[in-house]
Every structure is written in structure tokens, then in C-alpha cells.
Design a protein around this nucleic acid. Structure first.
Lengths: 205, 205
DNA sequence: GACTTTTCTTGATGAGAGTCAATTTTTTTG
DNA sequence: CAAAAAAATTGACTCTCATCAAGAAAAGTC
């Protein structure tokens, strides 16, 4: 373990700085220590699609890691002051050869991410916006509480819009619709009260 | 290598048979030997979204492999007579521990698939159908030829529709549109002639 | 706390794409 | 090769959602 620790660098990024940009050559693995990082893509026409948000403990960069020659197409932007642990491709490969069990862990993580991505593709492709929003809310309820939970949106509404492949205007209207139907209540800030989770899920058809 | 060969079973599926269905407990890795397999998902409302098509050499089942307890949400259907090599979760894990280099290969494959999935999500989310179709065609040109290539559609148009998150009717219309614009010619069967690849790509805005 | 900036909301309008239905073409099968 | 099944096409209609614009609210900054 010390071997790899010796190869890792800690880097700090201010809010708004990029860990990497699309098309840039880069072959490091980034593990977030502190802060928050948005991973997104840009279409030809300049519209962005949020891929995911990295919180402490999350990592990115596995693409270039195992496909060193190819360019990647994502942007990684620190949305607040962030520190990351950065390990070069070569060192990671060495490390994985030495500790095969880690590869299995990594494969597990990757397959989860793949599953999530496939699910998101399917949702964006075939579900209406209201359904996507409901499913998004359902995925983000804190598991603790019962059937009438209060949730905290994990990102700004404009980011939810981007993540769900729609616009802030539409998201705003859909939240309004859910509130009119008595299914949710928008409390202050990012807090949302769900009246009845089952009812909410039933609404998405 | 013999160790794993001993653990593998060969199974045959007739056209229309399922290797597995959504929600079914299953923890095997499937490697396609011969034939063709459609991997797809169903929305609540019953609409399907094609995730990918497996040809000989391709594999699936990695999800349950590394997340044995979770249920998967995909359907794997043989679209012609198919034979697969099937290996149980436990045996794969043993095998990977014994040959760590394979894990690295697998990680490479998974990260490519993840990249492709993310790209597809982004496209379905923010691009118009005509743009998605053009990008799909561009991705499927055989690399050999110059700027006026002939391509063979890798799947039925209805599957392209499903893959691109739209309907057969719309795909049919968009192909017609491209043909009217003089950008492509639909030859017999699944063969398409592209007049000028650059022009085609420029059209997608 | 006042100012600036970003995010969110609301309205009006239009276009892209889905749905339903009927026909034609292609592919499959015995 | 003929019959059956599946896939593709075309037309008419509808509707969800994006866009543009303008104002309100919230968050961040000095």
C-alpha cells in the first residue's frame, strides 16, 4: 500500500477550475478528497448533459486509464474548492497487478456505474419528463424514513434538468405540477417533502 | 486455463428464447459463441429500449457477477439460434484472482462500454433524432473506404429506432429526409450509400 | 445589509416527434 | 415458391416539451 501512496499527488482546485477538459490528453485517476466535481458533456450545439457529480470518495478517469490512446469527451469541473488525489495510469496498473483483489472491487464499482448509466439512457429515451423526475426523486429519498419522507435535492434544479435531459423551465413546471397534485411540497431551499411515496410513483405514467 | 474451461457450460438457445429476463436471479457470465443476442430494457409503460446487441465474442452478465445480491433489469433474447458459453459467478471470481491480467482486460472492456453508454445518454438527452441518426450512421461506416462509403446497417431499423430512443415511423421518415437531401441512398436491404460523409455530418445541427 | 450574480419561475408560441391506422415491402418458413 | 409473419412506409392528427422573453427569488460577495 505504501508503494502506491508514494506515487499519488494531491492537487487542489478552486471553484470553477477544471480537472480536465474534453479532448485533452490525460491519463490519471482522480479520487475526490474534499469538495465537489461536476462531470458533463457538451453537444455540438453547445448544450450540456450532466453525467454525474463526484463527492468525496468518488473517482473518475478510468476511461483514459485503460484506453490510454483515446481521447475522452468529458469535462470535470470543480464546483467548489476541491482537493483530489491523483495517480498516474502507469502506477495504477502496477498497483492492480500487485493487488488483484482491488481489480475485483473496481470491476464491481464499474459495473454499478454501467448499470446506472444504462438505466439513465433507457429513462431519457422512453420516459416522459414527469416520469424521469419522479424516478429521480424516488432514487434520492433518504432510506431512513417511512412513506412520507423529506428529501434534500442533491444538486441545483438546473443540474437536475441537465441530468434528466431537459430544461430548467420544464423542470420548474413539473415541480409545480407535482405540487398542485398534492404529491410533494417544496420547502425552503433544496428541501422537498413527499406526501406519499407510493402515490408519487403511481403518478408517473 | 483448463481450470476455467472445466467450469464452463455450453448452452444453446433457439431464436426467441431468453438467456435471462429482468428481475430473475442469475449470476452467470455469458459469452456468445455463435448467433446474436439483443439486450434491452422495458419501461413501466412497456416500451423497450435496446441497450446493445451481442455478437460472437461479446459477453454480458457482468452486473450480477460483481453485485450478486442485486437484481438486474435487462432482458437478453436470442434473435437467432445461439450458443453461449456460461460460467458461474464463483468460478469467474476464482479465475480472475488467479489471472489478474484478465481483470485489467475486463476493466478496459467495461470502461469502453461505460464510455459508449454515457455518450449515448448524452445524445439521446440533447440531440434531435436526425442528429442521433447521422451520428449513428457515422459510427457504423466501415473504416476502409474514403469519403463516399457504403455501409451495412448492423441491425433492423426498428432496432435502430429503439436504440436511438425513438420509433420506427420516425426513423423511416428521417431516412427519407436524408435521401431527399441527396445525402444518402438506400440500396437493397440494409445497405446504405453515403454520398459525402462530411456533408452528412454537417447536416446534423 | 446592500449589491451583484445566478438560479428559478411563469407566460406565450411553435416545432419536433409520438400515436394511431392502413398499406406495402421484405423476410422467414414450410 | 407460395403463404405467413415481421418490418418498413406513409398520412393525418395530437401533444409534449423546447424556446424566447421577462421578472422574481435565492445565493454569493463585498
Amino acid at each position: 500500500m505504501d508503494r502506491i501512496a508514494g506515487k499519488a499527488h494531491t492537487k487542489h482546485y478552486q471553484k470553477g477550475a477544471f480537472l480536465f477538459r474534453s479532448q485533452e490528453k490525460d491519463d490519471a485517476l482522480y479520487i475526490v478528497n474534499r469538495g465537489k466535481v461536476r462531470i458533463y458533456r457538451l453537444s455540438d450545439s453547445g448544450k450540456e448533459q450532466l453525467v454525474r457529480i463526484l463527492n468525496p470518495g468518488d473517482f473518475t478517469g478510468e476511461w483514459t486509464l485503460f484506453n490510454p490512446d483515446a481521447v475522452h469527451e468529458e469535462y470535470a469541473e470543480a464546483t467548489r474548492d476541491t482537493s483530489v488525489c491523483m495517480i498516474q495510469q502507469h502506477d495504477v496498473q502496477e498497483f492492480l497487478k500487485e493487488y488483484p483483489a482491488i481489480s475485483l472491487k473496481l470491476l464491481g464499482e464499474m459495473s454499478q456505474r454501467l448499470e446506472k448509466s444504462a438505466r439513465q439512457t433507457a429513462q431519457v429515451a422512453v420516459e416522459s419528463v414527469i416520469t424521469r423526475l419522479v424516478l429521480f426523486l424516488a432514487e434520492n429519498v433518504e432510506p431512513e424514513m417511512g412513506n412520507s419522507p423529506t428529501i434534500t435535492l442533491p444538486m441545483a434544479k438546473k443540474d437536475i434538468a441537465s441530468y434528466l435531459g431537459t430544461t430548467p423551465e420544464t423542470i420548474s413546471r413539473k415541480f409545480g405540477e407535482l405540487e398542485n397534485e398534492g404529491l410533494i411540497q417544496q420547502l425552503s431551499g433544496k428541501r422537498i417533502k413527499i406526501q406519499d411515496l407510493d402515490d408519487l410513483l403511481l403518478y408517473s405514467e
